[in-house]
Simulated assay, not measured.
Amino acid sequence: MAKHQHVKLSNLELAKRILFITIGATLMAVGLEIFLVPNNLIDGGIVGISIIVAHLTGLPLGAFLFLLNLPFLILGYKQIGKTFAMSTLYGVTVMSIGTFLLHPVAPLTEELFLAAIFGGVILGIGVGMVIRFGGSLDGTEIIAILVNKKSPFSVGEIVMFFNFFILASAGFIFGWNEAMYSLIAYYIAFKMIDVTIEGFDESKSVWIISEDAKEVGDAIMSRLGRGVTYLHGEGGFTGGTKKVIFCVITRLEEAKMKSIVHELDPSAFLAVGNIHDVKGGRFKKRDIH
């Protein structure tokens, strides 16, 4: 019985992954064919190269989206794993077919600024959704991982250089006006990917070192409704024992948290960091009466 339940849950997770990767890849196709491509705007990565090559050859964009991503999926198979590779292959296939089907559809706007904004938003949501559910729509990251092993540059630096080169190339092919609007679309998409992956209710970790740790911790629990954990540390310079407060809050609670700490101990050490995911424990907020 337990085994049957496990399989059922696995099938549910698989169906959920397929559904959201399909939606994300479809949104990517909409952003490309309804907003960016008809207005000669491009995205970064393999998608950007595909748009440029399709424009120069007059062949369908979907063919290049699939064919140019395929070699890097094969090359990076061992680095990224079977599940990620298959999810990415499925996402790229859906995106490619989507661009074929949407290509005859007229663009919603011919205003470059509007196309850059709405195209960037839709692209970012689509890509973020696919990444959130275990896939990808662009082989750029795989290229960066492979090059990173033989170069002193980080994956992020390689991706940035790669995209700068592609967006600069758009200036010579489509015109500098279109290239600058493409940069706007790329930036908006980049931000929307983060929002889609992390959500608007982004979590933050808080570390507090205070001489009045118990009082500060009690105030956080009673006034914010968040649980705290007390850790015991040792000062590097003094060698003295320190009590460290650790807790997880949302982005919207950060200002109130700082206010509480400053009110009770203005000299307290406070460090706040971003968290991409929170699971388990008692993160759910307790009601404040």
Rank of each mutant, 00 (worst) to 15 (best):
His103Trp: 08
Asp138His: 05
Val155Glu: 06
Ala116Ile: 03
Ala144Leu: 01
Met95Lys: 11
Glu110Trp: 06
Pro152Glu: 14
Lys150Asn: 04
Pro104Arg: 06
Ile122Tyr: 07
Gly120Asn: 11
Gly119Thr: 02
Phe162Lys: 02
Ile145Asn: 01
Phe100Leu: 11
Val155Gly: 06
Val105Met: 01
Val92Arg: 13
Leu102Pro: 03
Val155Ile: 15
Ser136Trp: 07
Ala170Lys: 03
Phe174Cys: 09
Lys149Asp: 00
Gly175Gln: 10
Lys150Gln: 08
Gly134Phe: 00
Gly119Gln: 04
Phe164Ile: 12
Gly156Leu: 11
Ser169Val: 03
Pro104Lys: 00
Gly134Gln: 04
Glu110His: 14
Gly124Trp: 10
Leu108Thr: 13
Lys150Val: 02
Phe161Arg: 01
Thr99Ala: 07
Met95Tyr: 11
Ile131Asn: 04
Ala168Gly: 06
Ile145Lys: 11
Phe172Val: 06
Glu110Val: 07
Ile143Pro: 02
Leu146Ile: 13
Gly98Met: 12
Asn177Leu: 13
Val159Arg: 01
Leu114Pro: 05
Pro152Phe: 09
Leu112Met: 12
Glu178Tyr: 13
Ala116Phe: 05
Val121Ala: 00
Leu114Tyr: 15
Val127Asp: 11
Val130Asp: 04
Phe164Pro: 00
Ile145Ala: 10
Ile125His: 12
Leu123Cys: 12
Phe118Gly: 13
Ile158Pro: 09
Leu101Tyr: 04
Leu137Asp: 12
Phe118Ile: 12
Val121Asn: 02
Lys149Asn: 11
Phe84Glu: 06
Ile158Leu: 15
Glu141Ser: 11
Gly139His: 03
Thr99Ser: 15
His103Lys: 03
